[in-house]
Write a protein that binds this DNA or RNA. Structure first.
Lengths: 189, 189
DNA sequence: TCTTTAAAAGGACATTTGTCCCACTTAGAA
DNA sequence: TTCTAAGTGGGACAAATGTCCTTTTAAAGA
């Protein structure tokens, strides 16, 4: 449920050791908004520590969470490849520490470091792979099944994440989430 | 609704003209199954002509369509970057003509042709970008709105695609689709 | 042409989920 | 401390969607 990419994180550390490429550092407080959808940015972020959420807000103000990003996950990278706007807002869920890359540096690495290129390519592939079953599963299974799945992949999710975020992640209302949680509790007794 | 990637298609043509890289050709009949989920393949496909669907089937036999692939769209490419299995089945919706690349050739192009690398990278980014709003929209809006959207992006979709495919694409049952279509017809009078 | 099979349409009912509330708790600000 | 605002939990009802089944239509094969 909270995605990570250790390979990328480690590789960035190794880049820092051996070369002088300019990689920045930033920190954000919990709940701070980092990227806002429909805008244009020039920085790629990779999470060093903490959890962020990537979400879309529609015209009615409903938000739908695409994924929770954990250590080693990147965001803002799609804008390197085209001139398009960001589709997702990103905000910190907990205290957050990140690496930052300017588009120039990021591109330079992509072109000169084939291992880096490969890792990024694979990270993109993973994001595609990840989204497919998630959404199809959520459509065709009752809420309860989805919650059980979440608990398997991230047992403490109820305590760590606000209820509203969980609901927005599954794509349901807070009310429905509560109903399902209650029924689950009774079944587990 | 039916996605295309002209840039990639044109670039493949240009590769063929100037180099002798081994790119294959294949054709499939309508409804033919090309890739089956949870298997491992060694070929990347790029659509020259026709429409394919990329879908996931769950344990109960329900299928959920991820995207409809048109000219210039690639599939089977995610398996180049890792040893994982295919998540999606792919089958021909109409008669289909494709280019094929062995993993070896595909990788060779990625490593030696930086423009090709860029185009593929961008194609991956597009797939990510595309999926995000699609699923969130479908969750939070009534079926009718989704149909209106489809009609805008692909007016003939009702005549070209089987009803069941449309339903599976939106993530609803055929019954619900019919209901919504009927109500829409009456409103448009 | 007739026959068989699959796709499409829709009725009746059950179930799920959402909407709109209100009450209770908790954390932080005054 | 007291007060406010945000988060949480849940009742009652409405609306949307699914399930099951039957009928109709269209298409394909013999």
């Amino acid at each position: 449920m909270i995605r990570t990419n250790n390979e990328l994180l480690e590789y960035i550390h190794s880049i820092q050791k051996r070369s002088s490429v300019s990689i920045g550092n930033m920190a954000f407080k919990a709940k701070e908004l980092i990227l806002e959808q429909d805008r244009r940015y020039n920085t790629v972020y990779v999470i060093k520590k903490g959890i962020a959420k990537c979400f879309i807000t529609d015209e009615n103000g409903k938000e739908f969470i695409q994924e929770f990003l954990g250590e080693g996950m990147e965001f803002g990278e799609l804008e390197v490849f085209s001139e398009k706007y960001t589709i997702c807002s990103v905000s910190a869920v907990s205290k957050l520490e990140v690496f930052t890359f300017s588009h120039g540096v990021f591109n330079h690495l992509l072109e000169t470091d084939s291992r880096f290129n490969q890792i990024i390519m694979n990270a993109l592939a993973d994001k595609i792979r990840y989204k497919a079953p998630r959404h199809s599963y959520q459509h065709s299974y009752p809420i309860e099944d989805n919650l059980i799945r979440l608990k398997e992949s991230f047992p403490e999710f109820i305590d760590v994440l606000p209820k509203k975020d969980i609901a927005n992640y599954i794509g349901i209302t807070a009310r429905s989430l509560n109903r399902a949680l209650k029924e689950l509790q009774e079944k587990w007794k």
